[in-house]
Simulated assay, not measured.
Amino acid sequence: MSRYERWNALLELLAEHGRLEVEEAAEALDVSAATIRRDLDQLARQQVLTRTRGGAVAHGVSYDLPLRYKTARHADAKQRIGALVAGLVAPGEVVGLNGGTTTTEVARALAVRTDLAERPESGHGLTVVTNALNIANELAVRPQVKIVVTGGVARPQSYELIGPLAAQVLGELALDTAVLGVDGFDAGHGATAHHEGEAAVNRLLAERARRVVVAADSSKLGHRAFARICGLEAVDTLVTDDRVPDGLAAAFAEAGVTVLTA
């Protein structure tokens, strides 16, 4: 196991339990306690955890891992979800994408759509409005995609732009489809995010769109995070993986949300 794989594994354990002890982590990862101590020290210097005597604790009650540490989590499912969501988009649409690993996979799937050739009337096969710097960076080199970036203050955890500048730009735009990556999607509380600033921008994306698609792997379903994005009544479609529990899928469908599994 490489150092970065260990770091990902440690942060996965921390996200699950909220606290780690050195000896327990060493046993779980089959490495020495000294290695775990060095890893925790390095992660603490990156300010993604807080060191304690004998281990580490997560920052805050609602733990939000930086995006760079989330890329390996449920990667296959997120790629399948991304491809399915991209298939729902028609050439010429204006699509809003917020930040996150799943919406990044949606952007990558859109980038390789062969039918999104340049259209004579607009010069672009697709317009993408995003507050995610990493998504804008990946799509900026695609001539068939017009990129509109919201502006705002960047959050290093997610590469998302938030704040009044982002809200001001979104208030002037009309979207065909908003694709939202979420930290939680629950039948009672709807779509939620760890950070209130991100939730506010995500809510505006949903409000400016004719159709709202939530793209989330099954680990996000049935859970809620700190800040509410929107209720189920605002969501048209949920695209998830085939591990969604039948009862939960039925609850979403009963609320009027179309559930598609990849």
Rank of each mutant, 00 (worst) to 15 (best):
T240C: 04
D241L: 03
A174L: 11
A178G: 13
D242K: 06
A225R: 00
H189S: 12
V129P: 06
N134C: 09
L221M: 08
V145M: 13
A140I: 15
V212A: 08
T130M: 07
L238E: 06
L133A: 12
L133W: 09
G181R: 00
V128F: 09
P245V: 07
V153S: 12
L175Y: 02
A132Q: 02
A206P: 00
V179Q: 01
E196Q: 11
P245C: 04
A154F: 10
E207V: 07
R208N: 07
V179E: 04
V235T: 11
L173H: 02
E160V: 01
S158L: 05
H189E: 11
V148P: 02
F226W: 13
L232S: 10
K220G: 05
G190N: 11
L205I: 11
S122Q: 12
E233Y: 13
S219D: 10
V153L: 14
D236W: 05
G247L: 05
I162M: 07
E198Q: 06
L175N: 02
R203C: 08
L180W: 01
T127P: 01
T258C: 10
T240G: 01
A191V: 08
L170N: 03
A166C: 06
T177H: 07
R142A: 14
L260W: 04
R208L: 08
G231V: 10
D176P: 04
D236S: 14
T150N: 01
D241M: 05
R203G: 07
A200W: 06
F252A: 08
S218H: 12
N137I: 07
A132V: 06
D246M: 08
A215V: 02
P164C: 05
P156H: 13
S219R: 10
T237V: 15
Q168W: 13
Q157S: 14
D183F: 08
E207N: 10
V149E: 03
A216W: 04
V212L: 03
D236G: 10
G197L: 07
K220R: 11
L221D: 04
L260E: 01
A216P: 02
G231Q: 12
V235C: 09
S219Y: 05
R203Y: 05
A234V: 14
V129L: 12
R211V: 07
V179M: 09
N202S: 15
V141S: 15
G190D: 08
F226T: 03
D242E: 11
E196N: 06
